[in-house]
Design a protein around this nucleic acid. Structure first.
Length: 257
DNA sequence: AGAACCGCCTGCTTGC
DNA sequence: TGCAAGCAGGCGGTTC
């Protein structure tokens, strides 16, 4: 499922293909996306990632905001033939951009440009001190907190599990029990791990493919996500899986205190 | 404030 | 083999 590294990958690839290009046509195949209007004839200024959203900035002051949710992805193809699970197509001079989404959870909105989210984005002007000040005394679980897009933008279940493993923090800990040092570790590893994941063009454990239909390579870097019952790679412990707010959390009870 | 649950969806896995 | 139930989950919503 597209999280920060996957969305960043798409955003970078899209920028190369459609910056400065005119949208020659737009065809919606799913009634749920009937709100996509007035994009034909517009020119793309640039493409940016805003949290987990892709923002295609147009020349009329509006943006196309796309959230992939679970199974959404973009596919670039020269030929206009509709791929399986295609929900929307935009045609440009050099090719076609398809929104593919088997579960139909993805959302597209045309609106004014998004507000700047730099303070909550690890790769922008992230403010660690401000984060700890605002959220450090919460009684909510640390895993839930780092996945809260209001607090921190971009993390989903896979990377949240992996970050806590690398930081040696148990996902059941509440935010208020963490020290400044713990937060430092979390954000150090978050940055480190997400950088690698972007370089490897995301984690293809199920549906994820990049703009050209290629698998990412970050799935080989996962240490705990989906590894229930396997040996921990740094101790003799076994990776367990628990439910936190309806979502699976994977961790090593031995390494993560 | 925080947790638990639901609905949105469909493809895949599991169990009989 | 075949079919149905169960599961996966981001997010917005409601409820306790």
């Amino acid at each position: 499922m597209p999280e920060l590294p996957e969305v960043e990958t798409l955003s970078r690839q899209l920028r190369k293909e459609i910056c400065g290009c005119k949208i020659l046509s737009s065809k919606v195949y799913d009634d749920k996306l009937a709100n996509i209007k007035n994009v034909r004839g517009r020119r793309v200024i640039t493409v940016e990632r805003n949290g987990k959203r892709i923002e295609i900035i147009l020349d009329d002051g509006n943006s196309i905001l796309v959230h992939m949710r679970m199974t959404g992805r973009f596919l670039w193809h020269e030929k206009p033939e509709k791929p399986k699970h295609c929900r929307w197509r935009m045609t440009f001079n050099d090719g076609n951009l398809f929104l593919i989404d088997p579960r139909r959870f993805a959302t597209v909105k045309i609106s004014k440009r998004l507000e700047n989210d730099a303070g909550k984005d690890i790769f922008k002007k992230f403010d660690l001190k401000g984060f700890v000040k605002n959220y450090g005394s919460r009684k909510t679980k640390v895993k839930t907190l780092i996945m809260d897009q209001e607090a921190l933008s971009g993390l989903g279940n896979i990377y949240a599990c992996e970050i806590l493993y690398r930081a040696g923090i148990n996902p059941e800990r509440t935010a208020e029990t963490l020290t400044e040092d713990d937060w430092g570790k979390i954000f150090y590893h978050a940055k480190d791990l997400l950088k690698v994941a972007i370089k490897k063009r995301g984690t293809s454990i199920s549906d994820w493919r990049d703009l050209y239909g290629c698998r990412g390579e970050n799935q080989y870097e996962l240490k705990v996500y989906g590894q229930e019952g396997r040996n921990c790679c740094s101790c003799a412990g076994i990776i367990v899986r628990i439910k936190q707010g309806g979502r699976s959390s994977f961790y090593c009870p031995n390494c993560q205190k």
